[in-house]
Design a binder for these strands. Structure first.
Lengths: 150, 150
DNA sequence: TATAATAGTCAGACTATCTGACTAAATCAC
DNA sequence: GTGATTTAGTCAGATAGTCTGACTATTATA
């Protein structure tokens, strides 16, 4: 494989590094979360998510998502409650313990990005973010246009 | 999760898109390869790789790597032969069928990057690649410095 | 040459994933 | 408004891919 590294692979290395740095500190802080759980967890909306939406967003089956949500509920990071607006649905929401983990993750993310700034410069990192954001529009099926994010 | 998307997550979306596009076409072309197999396969060196190196590069245990290599050998994409320079080791090399799959993957990668150029411009894509390459140096543990790649 | 390190395999367990079949509730079509 | 269809989620079972621990064979080292 002696090739000009393609952008997909380079992006993977960046993504994996960030994920590993965050996971390492989250686990070091005593949180008992697996990678699969974390990947689903980070998609839970502040206002609560439905299982079906979570599954779609994470590109998993509902069954797989339910399995991971069960574990995250048992570990105290999420709760399920009936959705008042739809008797079939249940709302999955983040607990205080879950928010603590998110806060820690945000801290680590900021620290890693700071390291990247030391390498690429403030301008370089912002240029990178801008380019990736524009790519997101054609690369992320859950992108619904500017501002429609929330 | 109503946050300024961090670069790690944005990089993930880009990586996943490329991977899915490539896998979809590789499978459509009749190759019977799973994602896990492909992720290992793409790390096999042109000159042949050792299992231990593959495992380390893909961040798997030797056992897991061996399991995937077994499948790729059975499917005709790889072969194993004794390493003439080390009686303990075996050299894992790419078959002609494996090279066909790689050629196809390269074609799809080029097509996807062309789409990205339509969005970001030629300059934008090259700027993105340049930034990711510089980040690679601090983000990829198997990076051994310029030119030492081979 | 005895000891330690390295390359890989064997055996067994477990996590995360899937497919298929199902229940209950909401929505749609008259 | 009732019957058919769609939607949200669960239950049961299978499987892929991953791990840990223990082992063999070969090479390198003291």
């Amino acid at each position: 494989m002696t090739n000009e590294p393609n952008i997909g692979l380079l992006a993977f290395l960046v993504y994996r590094h960030m994920e590993q740095r965050v996971m390492a500190e989250v686990i070091a802080a005593g949180h008992q979360v697996t990678l699969s759980q974390a990947r689903l967890f980070e998609r839970v909306d502040d206002a609560g998510s439905r299982l079906t939406d979570l599954a779609e967003s994470a590109q998993l089956t509902k069954q797989s998502a339910a399995y991971l949500v069960d574990e995250l509920v048992a570990a105290g990071y999420l709760t399920r409650s009936p959705d008042p607006r739809d008797g079939r649905a249940r709302l999955i929401t983040i607990t205080d313990k879950g928010r603590e983990a998110i806060a820690l993750a945000r801290t680590v993310e900021a620290r890693v990005e700071a390291e990247w700034k030391a390498r690429l410069g403030e301008d370089g990192v912002e240029e990178l973010r801008a380019l990736l954001l524009r790519l997101r529009e054609i690369v992320d099926p859950y992108w619904t246009g500017p501002k429609a994010d929330e």
